[in-house]
Design a protein around this nucleic acid. Structure first.
Lengths: 223, 223
DNA sequence: ATGACCCGATACGTCGGAGGTCTTCAACGC
DNA sequence: GCGTTGAAGACCTCCGACGTATCGGGTCAT
């Protein structure tokens, strides 16, 4: 095993074992390199790799710190990975989203606050009559994100955030080729919101399922 | 933005755009560094980071290649990230698993082959009467893994692999020393297998839900 | 002709050192 | 009291050199 890989494992071990806690500052490069028994260059490769997946936060002129290690932060690195997937796996991601998002929406129905409900409503109202495709995609993402955040499970939220990345393109295609898609999406959004306001978890789950299934169906028929 | 981060983005761009395809070989370090306008050391940091998340495969003495980019391979890096999560987030991961795994089990009921069913049965039989904790963890992991693989969705499979990896499961099992918990788990495994054999998706889903919920309930009461 | 073995070319792995740039913070002058 | 300035500390980038692993062609014995 390469010394850099050893260094990655050692740093990981220090964090997992608790020797390094979230927010802690690492020894400076030269010291850490000496402590782990490798050169500064090789250590930097290890630090850079851990920095890419948000384990470490390197600040020039200051130092290197352990991040908060929040699920939200760590799983955020997943969207980077997801970007590499080819179009032919979009359907698989969408299938996973069809499992997760209705469940998250149902969970949100039981615990979403009045404030969040108003915020979602205001967000839907803010969208004009003839929004651009970019506005529609952004609104769609933000709407579902707001709901999933109200599910109270940050892991679930981050996971959905990650896998919604590749479907973004699908949403754009859909907006470009189906005229009535815009109106239908907005109607479904309002239906989901109404179910949330009624604290009707099953109806909210069903609307979410319908909402995603329509995208999936269109995508399946057009590939 | 640092030159290394630029290099990461450029390499990512080359892959996403299709200029580099899965299995392709990259130019040698010195050439690629010159092409991207940075030093070999800085480029190596970028390559190392992409290597950690299985985008690139570096072989000493040979060259650097783009991996297959399979969802299975890329999401495998997620288990590395999950290892960093603290015990207090185990419940959130388990909640996500409780959503995904019943769905995956139901999907598997519709398409699992006789051969896989026999393999699962043989695997359950192989476990002795008084297995060690390590054997239990391995058996539990392999059983659910086998089912999820039969769901036919590699993204779903990899995702579940990541969030219920060895580390996470070991943490749970370490506390589950109660004898009846072990026996109950094994009974539930056989019930799930029976439902799969009957092609009864709803029963399989329910057993999977019960199976995970019991773990979740125990964990919640003991924290 | 076939197989094992050797060896050079190639490419990644590691190292040490030299400047450069950025952040922080305390000392200074107004 | 406040803004400025300077130095110290830490990361950033580069260079050149050497070590090590892999591959492929050539050689030699069978």
């Amino acid at each position: 095993m390469a010394v850099t890989d050893e260094a990655i494992e050692k740093i990981k071990g220090m964090i997992v074992s608790g020797a390094l806690r979230p927010g802690d500052r690492l020894p400076r490069e030269s010291e850490l390199a000496a402590a782990l028994g490798l050169s500064r260059n090789s250590l930097r490769e290890a630090v850079r790799a851990l920095s890419l997946i948000r384990i470490l936060d390197v600040r020039q002129g200051d130092g290197t710190y352990v991040t908060s290690l929040d699920p939200q932060l760590l799983l955020q690195a997943m969207s980077f990975v997801v970007d590499f997937h080819r179009d032919d796996t979009v359907l698989e991601f969408l299938a996973v989203r069809r499992i997760l998002e209705p469940a998250a929406t149902a969970m949100a129905a039981l615990r979403i606050g009045e404030q969040q409900l108003d915020a979602l409503a205001a967000q839907l109202d803010r969208l004009g009559d003839s929004p651009s495709v970019e506005e529609l995609v952004a609104c769609d993402l933000e709407f579902h994100r707001g709901i999933v955040q109200s599910s109270g499970n940050s892991v679930l939220c981050s996971l959905l955030d990650g896998i919604s990345g590749p479907t973004t393109r699908a949403r754009i295609w859909r907006g470009l080729t189906q005229e009535d898609a815009v109106a239908r999406t907005l109607r479904e959004h309002r239906a989901i919101l109404a179910a949330l306001r009624d604290r009707d978890a099953e109806t909210a789950r069903s609307w979410a399922t319908v909402h995603i299934a329509s995208v999936e169906q269109w995508l399946r028929s057009s590939l």
